[in-house]
Design a protein around this nucleic acid. Structure first.
Length: 295
DNA sequence: CATGTCAGGG
DNA sequence: AACTTATTCT
DNA sequence: AGAATAAGTTCCCTGACATG
């Protein structure tokens, strides 16, 4: 893998960013894949070796060294792969929570799930239909049982696939138009559908400043649970502000992280909030307050 | 050695 | 990642 | 007007480096 000095290396391509939707598309020209819960990563091999780039183009090859090494063994001179680095459980399901520690201390327990092929042996494949890119990708990574895996898909019947994803306790799914080209940035030929949970939490306090998104500090089972964005319709929102004025307290009624200093309006206990949040963790993630009532 | 701040990902 | 706001497009 | 797009913030988590 040596070429004259001065030869340009393959450069990072800004990744495609799917649009989020409520329900997956149903028509037959869509294919569906699991949404792997991990870190978006671009694997690039060229004449000087392999590298791994984060979503924003930072070189994270060092953290992912076993994956980079595996990439150099794939049967091609050069390529650009789009995919996700995950921390697989014994059953194969990704565990987002374990990503960080494994990145540093047990990088060999990480895996790369490839889902697109942007460039192969000097050919830019971005305008080739997705279904053909994936066929070439499979040829490159098969049998894809080890460190470098392959994101399989089904064709059509998105509603049924979503049910399966929901049942398996996965984060969500990504649907893609089977003939679509690869383009950087927000593109609606890829859409993601996430699995959500809804539950009741105690409202500990409110953090709000003019012009900035307001947040609700929540607890469950007597313990701090995280914060949720307040996305109430204006009517409900006003009612909540009134309720906040009436229940002001000088201290939180539960223990909260020390990061919350002064700019929070703490409340007396008794307000229950219904929170929609991303399934999976015990702490609130991607949470929003949907409604509230007296406890 | 403990705590603080920043960078980077979702 | 999410959200809000502003801007552009249809 | 409404939908789509872009930009700018905030939250959560961890590690690295700086500061005390």
């Amino acid at each position: 893998m040596r070429k004259p000095a001065g030869e340009a290396r393959l450069s990072f391509i800004k990744p495609l960013d799917p649009v989020q939707v409520e329900t997956p598309p149903v028509s037959d020209d869509w294919i569906h894949e699991i949404k792997y819960d991990g870190y978006r990563t671009q694997l690039i091999l060229d004449w000087a070796g392999a590298r791994a780039f984060s979503r924003n183009g930072h070189d994270w090859s060092k953290r992912y060294w076993p994956i980079v090494a595996a990439a150099e063994k794939l049967p091609a001179k050069s390529f650009i792969l789009d995919g996700e680095i995950i921390a697989p459980e014994p059953d194969g399901r990704p565990n987002f929570h374990r990503m960080h520690s494994r990145m540093v201390w047990n990088a060999e327990q990480l895996a790369f799930v490839a889902f697109d092929l942007l460039d192969l042996d000097g050919q830019d494949l971005r305008s080739v239909p997705l279904i053909e890119r994936k066929a070439k990708l499979w040829e490159l990574v098969k049998p894809a049982k080890g460190i470098i895996q392959y994101s399989d898909h089904v064709e059509g019947n998105g509603a049924a696939f979503f049910e399966q994803v929901e049942k398996m306790g996965l984060e969500g799914m990504v649907s893609k138009r089977r003939e679509s080209p690869y383009r950087s940035g927000k593109v609606d030929s890829w859409v993601k559908t996430k699995c959500w949970d809804v539950g009741d939490f105690e409202l500990l306090g409110i953090k709000r400043e003019p012009g900035k998104p307001a947040a609700a500090i929540m607890a469950r089972g007597g313990r701090y649970a995280g914060t949720a964005f307040i996305t109430l319709p204006s009517g409900l929102r006003e009612r909540l502000w009134k309720r906040v004025e009436a229940a002001k307290a000088s201290k939180p009624s539960r223990r909260v992280p020390s990061a919350f200093a002064d700019d929070v309006e703490w409340l007396k206990p008794g307000i229950i909030g219904r929170v929609k949040f991303l399934r999976g963790e015990h702490t609130l993630r991607h949470a929003s307050l949907q409604d509230f009532r007296e406890g």
